[in-house]
């Protein structure tokens, strides 16, 4: 198992190089550069040139790329072009925990809600219960999360005042756990919605298939109650395909944070990313892209390891 993990990590290196080249290229294809946004329009052309020279913006792209990769390997993501003098690594370490926290909570939320509902649906297929769960799932899948987030803010926060409209904590107040949770509920819920719907559907399909298997009949013939049959003999088998989907959904969670953090003004890496993208803050964009790629690779690795945990037939 350990050698498998090491092998997987080594295999991830070319993947990450590919991703970094692609994203570097794409960002540089976009028109405009940071100088256009941050400079006083009346700046003298020679000062502009000096600035560009200083930050290496006049170098050919491949030199820029190599410089960047070289520094990155040493843990230096460079300095933000917009927030002058701020290290990108500082910006990220400040905000990454917030995003990871949000992701973790909504992933957990998605799992504990979708799996039981998927099972419920599969145990009573083609009944009112099943149709209700299915209908709600499709509704969840079809609802864009920026819209859903705005609707929640409008009704629950603005009109009813149950939740704060955004942010991670009440300003100018000492830390309190309840305050954090209070701020977390809506963004976590919105982030979880779409994937929750997808996971419910996959759990249902998979469990429906599993409950038809011969070993389920064997378990019934042993005299076990339906609950034990479903949860002990069915669930572990039913979750195997769900793990695959879950591994694939992890990056989408990350992508989701970009929108959700913007809407709820959540000081995470997604919000940082979107601001950086609008301002062509290359070092920040690139650093976040690389981190997202690393997280995706880690997510897939976790999914593969979970496979082996759930399914003894898989050996590495």
């Amino acid at each position: 198992m350990l050698s498998y993990i090491i092998r997987r990590i080594i295999m991830a290196i070319p993947l990450l190089i590919g991703i970094s080249i692609l994203s570097f290229g794409i960002i540089h294809l976009a028109p405009g550069d940071p100088t256009a946004l941050m400079m006083d329009p009346n700046i003298k052309p020679e000062d502009m040139e000096a600035y560009k020279e200083k930050y290496g913006l006049n170098d050919p792209p491949h030199i820029q790329y190599l410089k960047w990769v070289g520094n990155m390997i040493q843990g230096d993501f460079g300095q933000s072009l917009i927030r002058q003098g701020t290290d990108v690594s500082f910006l990220i370490t400040e905000r990454l925990p917030n995003t990871l926290f949000l992701m973790l909570v909504s992933t957990f939320l998605a799992l504990i809600i979708s799996i039981p509902f998927g099972i419920l649906s599969a145990r009573k297929p083609y009944t009112l219960t099943d149709y209700s769960v299915t209908f709600t799932s499709f509704l969840g899948l079809a609802t864009p999360n920026f819209w859903f987030g705005l609707v929640l803010i409008m009704f629950l926060s603005v009109q009813l005042g149950w939740f704060p409209t955004g942010g991670i904590a009440t300003l100018n107040e000492p830390f309190s756990l309840w305050d954090r949770i209070h701020h977390l509920i809506l963004p976590a819920l919105v982030l979880a919605t779409a994937d929750m719907a997808a996971l419910t559907r996959y759990t249902r399909t998979s469990m429906l298939e599993v409950l038809k298997q011969d070993y389920i009949r064997t378990a019934r013939a042993k005299g076990f109650k339906e609950r034990k049959v479903v949860y002990k003999h069915g669930l572990r088998n039913g979750l195997i395909p769900v793990i695959t989907i879950f591994g694939l959904l992890l990056p989408s969670f990350f992508a989701g944070t970009v929108i959700v953090e913007k809407i709820f003004n959540w000081p995470g890496i997604g919000l940082l990313f979107i601001d950086a993208a609008f301002q062509r803050d290359y070092p920040v964009i690139m650093a976040i892209t690389v981190i997202a790629a690393v997280l995706t690779v880690i997510g897939n690795l976790i999914a593969d390891i979970l496979y082996a945990v759930f399914d003894p037939r898989i050996e590495y």
């Binding site: 070993y215 064997t218 088998n237 037939r313």
Partner: peptide
Amino acid sequence: RGNDISMIFQEPMTSLNPV
């Protein structure tokens, strides 16, 4: 079931729980 009356099935390959 499984106590007074028990049952074995046709397909031994699929009648045992793989996990």
